[in-house]
Design a protein around this nucleic acid. Sequence first.
DNA 1: ATAACTGTACTAAACGAAATAATACAGATA
DNA 2: TATCTGTATTATTTCGTTTAGTACAGTTAT
Lengths: 126, 126
Amino acid sequence: MFELDVRSRVPIYEQLFEKIKELIIKGLLKEHEQLPSVRALSNDLTINPNTIQKAYRELENQGYIYSIPGKGSFVAPLKDRDINKEKIEKILEEVKKLMLEGLYLGMDREDFIKVLEDAIKIKEVR
Amino acid sequence: MFELDVRSRVPIYEQLFEKIKELIIKGLLKEHEQLPSVRALSNDLTINPNTIQKAYRELENQGYIYSIPGKGSFVAPLKDRDINKEKIEKILEEVKKLMLEGLYLGMDREDFIKVLEDAIKIKEVR
DNA sequence: ATAACTGTACTAAACGAAATAATACAGATA
DNA sequence: TATCTGTATTATTTCGTTTAGTACAGTTAT
């Protein structure tokens, strides 16, 4: 279900966090849809349960999923999520930094417009 | 000269690498301009010389600076730099991911257009 | 020439985050 | 009742980061 690089500099739990977050953002995981259990995913990925749980805990902390002991973990509805200015500010800052680097490397306005349209299109679909 | 967070999850040498790269990209450090020496920066930042050197080595590996033993380290001219497709692909991918996340959090097309214009403006100035 | 600067290299040790391993407890479910 | 679920805790291992200490060679100014 997920492709993780255990040799990466990026911690496994963080890779998993990002992958799941991405699926939720892209709408490939619907609201209230159940995620694989900690142990099931641990078996699938051959990764320690604690590591899986750490990713899930982080997803829950940031409002992407909710967990019910005894039942499972589920995708949180959007309205429950912590949408704050700081998060958006961070995204804007990061995008700007990447754009500067891209422009520096020879990319132009149109290149970024294209990606933007692309992202918008992906969002529309879901 | 630089503000680094020694408690950050991001390694110091990487923070330093990013800061200097940013100054070069923004044109605040001109071509062939001399960087602070490894030892001077080590004193300023109260950080081990080896850590500074690691950042400089990485900057040199990626073509942002060049070093002359006995003389110092200098900003590399743009044409000498390693501008490859992979780097641009990575930027595009990362920007797209951030845009998707932003759109998901309620941002819209115009928000990103603004950042783009902003980045272009910064580039023009240099 | 000499002192003080530059980059670079190397080894050893300390530190800390990440990951694993092994249990355990409580709630839900078939 | 057996088996699933999330959650918690402790100990241990592993590995990248950082520090410390030392050294060598080239450059520069006094």
